[in-house]
Simulated assay, not measured.
Amino acid sequence: MTTTTRPHPTEAGKHTGAEPRRRTTVKSPYPYWFYLPAALVYGTLFLVPTFASFYFSLTRWTLFDHEFIGLDNFRQFFDEPALVKGFTNTIVYAVVTSGLKVVLGLLLAVLLTSRIPARGYLRSVVFFPVLVSTIGVGITFTVLMNPEHGLINQSLGVLGVDGPGWLTDPKWALLSVALVDVWKGVGLATLIYIAGIVSIPQEYFEAASVDGASAFGRFRHIVLPLARPATVTVIILSLIGGLRSFDLIWAMTRGGPGFTSDVIASVIYKQYQAGFYGLSTAGNVVLFLVVTAVIVPLFWFLNRKEVEQ
């Protein structure tokens, strides 16, 4: 019996002078078709309305007709006396709500990741307001904050404290809505911080304990710097929500008393109610540009700081 042996490809290449064949992989275009449904939805629901709003902000339009008038809508919008107040209120509201959500969310997350009894139940309690309808929360707290018959002022009266007109006093109206917003949204901030804290390797905490670091020292030198991505996320999301706030304010105060709790979004809605569709569209463009002008540089700055560290 005779046996034949095939030469190894490399050996054959050496003897014949021919190079071994290289495998060519052809990339199938099929997976890219999976992007198409998402691209269609994104383009239909976001890109087309965005570009259309930029055009219609330059027109005086109704459902059946439109007339190009240039920048007149923007001039008229900025001449509105309520706009300056609404713009100031929007910035104050966004800063107050986002600041409180960052501080309270971080503190609650530290508490709810420590070894305390009923930790899972307390996490559910903190997160529960996020699941409740914003309009429902607004109506409920409108009743609770009633200056005469509300449960909050009645409870303060039992303690001998004369409660203010939470939603009727111009000094308290915007702040009252902001506090309700924090109560409703702090659960999401807490959840983001919990995810950031539990992702920190336990070896850092063990090494700090061995070195004799106190609880505050571990918080300052481990939790704060390593939970920075969560902080950036909470700041960005809270600021976007605060700058675009409308539903809770409208449900609780309608922008009142007077214009004291009006924000840009409520001013836009009042213009729309009055039938000034082109003017309200210009206001939406202004709001879009304000949010973009605040969020994009802040996002770049915070992420740049994170990379440097």
Score class of each variant (00 low, 15 high):
residue 222 I to R: 10
residue 170 P to F: 03
residue 140 T to A: 15
residue 152 I to K: 13
residue 152 I to C: 15
residue 229 P to S: 01
residue 132 V to W: 01
residue 166 W to D: 07
residue 213 A to S: 06
residue 231 T to L: 09
residue 131 L to T: 14
residue 194 I to L: 04
residue 133 S to P: 02
residue 156 L to Q: 14
residue 136 G to M: 03
residue 158 V to P: 12
residue 131 L to W: 10
residue 118 A to Y: 06
residue 177 V to Y: 14
residue 109 A to M: 01
residue 118 A to W: 11
residue 136 G to I: 05
residue 225 P to F: 10
residue 171 K to Q: 06
residue 221 H to M: 13
residue 133 S to C: 04
residue 113 T to V: 01
residue 176 S to W: 03
residue 210 V to D: 04
residue 208 A to F: 05
residue 216 F to A: 10
residue 200 I to V: 04
residue 127 F to V: 11
residue 196 G to R: 00
residue 180 V to A: 04
residue 197 I to K: 01
residue 166 W to E: 09
residue 198 V to M: 00
residue 225 P to M: 09
residue 230 A to D: 01
residue 139 I to T: 12
residue 116 I to Q: 02
residue 181 D to E: 11
residue 197 I to R: 00
residue 111 L to H: 09
residue 158 V to C: 11
residue 192 I to M: 05
residue 164 P to D: 03
residue 175 L to W: 10
residue 133 S to E: 01
residue 198 V to Q: 00
residue 227 A to F: 08
residue 222 I to V: 14
residue 205 F to V: 13
residue 157 G to W: 08
residue 199 S to C: 05
residue 206 E to S: 13
residue 121 Y to D: 15
residue 201 P to G: 08
residue 174 L to S: 02
residue 151 L to W: 06
residue 117 P to I: 08
residue 196 G to K: 02
residue 193 Y to W: 08
residue 198 V to G: 00
residue 156 L to G: 11
residue 121 Y to H: 09
residue 137 V to G: 04
residue 109 A to I: 02
residue 171 K to C: 02
residue 170 P to K: 07
residue 143 V to P: 05
residue 109 A to R: 02
residue 116 I to E: 01
residue 179 L to I: 04
residue 227 A to T: 10
residue 226 L to R: 03
residue 122 L to G: 06
residue 107 L to H: 04
residue 148 E to N: 12
residue 147 P to H: 04
residue 123 R to Q: 12
residue 139 I to E: 14
residue 184 K to V: 00
residue 110 V to P: 15
residue 202 Q to I: 14
residue 114 S to P: 09
residue 158 V to M: 10
residue 173 A to P: 07
residue 220 R to H: 11
residue 207 A to S: 06
residue 138 G to H: 00
residue 217 G to F: 02
residue 214 S to Y: 07
residue 162 D to A: 15
residue 183 W to N: 03
residue 154 Q to K: 10
residue 149 H to Y: 15
residue 201 P to S: 10
residue 169 D to K: 04
residue 129 P to D: 09
residue 203 E to T: 10
residue 159 L to Y: 00
residue 212 G to H: 12
residue 138 G to A: 01
residue 127 F to M: 06
residue 209 S to G: 15
residue 175 L to H: 06
residue 220 R to I: 14
residue 140 T to C: 08
residue 158 V to S: 13
residue 118 A to S: 11
residue 226 L to C: 00
residue 130 V to R: 11
residue 123 R to L: 06
residue 148 E to L: 12
residue 118 A to F: 09
residue 217 G to W: 12
residue 182 V to F: 08
residue 223 V to L: 12
residue 171 K to F: 03
residue 137 V to M: 07
residue 171 K to A: 15
residue 113 T to W: 02
residue 229 P to N: 02
residue 141 F to P: 05
residue 219 F to Q: 11
residue 143 V to C: 05
residue 137 V to A: 02
residue 138 G to S: 02
residue 143 V to L: 08
residue 146 N to V: 07
residue 182 V to A: 02
residue 192 I to S: 09
residue 228 R to Q: 13
residue 193 Y to L: 07
residue 230 A to H: 00
residue 146 N to S: 02
residue 157 G to F: 09
residue 149 H to D: 14
residue 201 P to A: 10
residue 139 I to V: 13
residue 109 A to Q: 03
residue 143 V to K: 08
residue 118 A to E: 14
residue 114 S to F: 13
residue 198 V to T: 06
